[in-house]
Design a protein around this nucleic acid. Structure first.
Length: 270
DNA sequence: AAAGACACCTGGGAGC
DNA sequence: TGCTCCCAGGTGTCTT
């Protein structure tokens, strides 16, 4: 599920239930996620107050005075707020129980997600090399243009590389390239500054709209508004291979780049 | 330094 | 019904 808008939706969903809460216990039912959950996580977290919940790329960070809990949702992860003692199911791997009796539950069928501890998140190897935030002022056409010179990889792969820009996954890269009229297979180093300007605007607009609509398919949290994401109703190209382009009626095509499905309009995208 | 293949894992759907 | 195969919103790591 989670690209940046879904992670941001998760952050906003849990924030009011988690911020200021004191951890009473941590239950780890399955420690084998992408990396093992550190065995000493409970002793690090218990009695700590959650000062804030922030996001860096697709990582959620729960801050305490002693360090920071990192949560990555992988391909299939999600978080819910539940009353403690709520029955758990097969893929409910971790519960963080608060003194108030509420529980932050991490569920992830594919276990590509991660739960890690960082004493100093800025020094953590997974975070230290991440690229710019797409909704920040640092994400500019000039940045992409300079960074891409002499690069021969495709623009699709370039945008999806988290060392360049974080959070823009397969769905939103497809959408943004369509919106900017750029063929996904075009070499990143052969795109003009002007076209990068269009692409940067497209990425920012699409991500903001997706956040406004609660992401694309993320299930919502039991205790927040109780709504799923609605952005899938606004997808212009992702998943529409073989159907007519919404702009020109040409038939949308699909290719695979880095084992990821890429849909494009052969007329609108060059 | 950069490109490409491969790894991790489960569930759902298509096809036989 | 059941089996096999392929696909899925991610990304670090190893080999060329």
């Amino acid at each position: 599920m989670p690209e940046l808008p879904e992670v941001e939706t998760s952050r906003r969903g849990i924030l009011p239930y988690v911020k200021g809460q004191v951890v009473g216990a941590v239950v780890i039912r399955k420690a084998l996620l992408r990396w093992p959950i550190p065995a000493d996580l409970p002793q690090r977290l218990v009695n700590q107050s959650i000062l804030d919940v922030t996001r860096r790329g697709k990582y959620l960070m729960l801050h305490t005075n002693k360090g920071c809990l990192l949560i990555h949702l992988g391909m299939s992860g999600h978080l819910r707020i539940l009353p403690s003692g709520h029955p758990f199911q097969k893929h409910d791997h971790v519960d963080i129980l608060f003194r108030t009796g509420q529980c932050l539950r991490f569920t992830d069928p594919r276990r590509f997600g991660a739960i890690l501890w960082a004493t100093d998140p800025n020094q953590h190897p997974l975070l230290a090399k991440l690229g710019v935030e797409p909704l920040s002022r640092q994400f500019t056409a000039d940045y992409l243009f300079q960074y891409s010179r002499k690069r021969t990889l495709t623009i699709k792969e370039f945008i999806m590389d988290s060392h360049i820009v974080v959070g823009v996954g397969n769905i939103y890269t497809n959408e943004a390239l369509f919106s900017a009229g750029i063929h996904p297979q075009r070499a990143a180093g052969r795109i003009s500054l002007q076209r990068y300007q269009q692409l940067v605007i497209a990425i920012k607009v699409i991500l903001k709209k997706a956040i406004q609509r609660g992401g694309t398919t993320l299930r919502d949290f039991q205790n927040s508004a109780g709504k799923p994401g609605y952005f899938q109703q606004h997808l212009q190209i992702y998943g529409r291979q073989g159907l007519a382009c919404l702009q020109c009626k040409d038939i949308l095509r699909e290719i695979r780049l880095s084992q990821r499905s890429s849909v494009y309009c052969p007329t609108c995208q060059r």
